[in-house]
């Protein structure tokens, strides 16, 4: 079983690599098109902007390969990597996301002045269903978030957890073999590492 981390110029690779390494997994950094065939699980990490991420994916001709990969293998998108799974984003109007999940990325707007944007820090998630990746993760656990945009999801049945920041937003999804989380499991201490353990156990 091989896990690949897509290098698409958005950073955060090292932290994801280290989280997997913690369980003795040596991941493969996907730098070029030929690397896709070497892995069974593809992680889209991501810190950065929607436009920068998608531009790089298109520049490298990764789009078709990711879509093909999604047909029969596992994909986990984290933070920005989760947002690009959707169709489009308010952050970069006109830029096409991967469109693997129906819905779009919108700017978080709160009326309460005490609620800051970006939503940065440790927040509770409310688990709707544990699914595969949140197995043995408790609802009262805190996870690290850092983002200004959220996913507005067409089919609520794929939501596995929500968080509150003024209103309720989705914090993770599972749609068959496609997984996504707005928070950073590799930056969320012990409870985050549990998610990586669950990911490794998928195969």
């Amino acid at each position: 079983m091989n896990i690949g981390i897509l290098n698409y110029n958005t950073g955060n690779l090292k932290s994801v690599e280290a989280a997997l390494n913690n369980f003795g997994i040596n991941s493969i950094i996907i730098n070029s098109k030929i690397d896709f065939d070497r892995v069974d699980i593809l992680i889209l990490p991501g810190v950065g902007s929607f436009n920068r991420a998608m531009s790089y994916i298109d520049e490298m001709d990764f789009r078709e390969l990711i879509l093909k990969f999604s047909k029969n293998k596992f994909i986990l998108g984290i933070c920005l990597g989760y947002q690009i799974l959707f169709e489009e984003s308010d952050e970069s109007p006109g830029v096409k996301g991967l469109g693997l999940i129906e819905g779009s990325i919108k700017k978080i707007i709160t009326k309460n002045k005490r609620l800051k944007i970006p939503h940065t820090g440790w927040n509770n998630i409310e688990i709707v269903k544990n699914g595969k990746l949140l197995d043995q993760v408790d609802s009262n656990e805190l996870f690290y978030f850092v983002h200004s945009y959220y996913a507005s999801i067409k089919d609520p049945r794929i939501i596995t957890s929500n968080f509150y920041h003024g209103s309720k937003f989705c914090s993770s999804i599972e749609n068959d073999n496609i997984y996504g989380m707005q928070f950073h499991p590799e930056k969320s201490g012990r409870q985050g590492l549990k998610i990586y353990e669950n990911l490794i156990n998928l195969i």
Binding site: G11, V47, G48, S49, R52, L80, E91, P118, T120, V146, H147, S148
Partner: peptide, 9 residues
């Protein structure tokens, strides 16, 4: 920086 790496970074 914001344009390239996003506000929250």
């Amino acid at each position: 920086l914001v344009k390239n790496f996003g506000s929250s970074t």
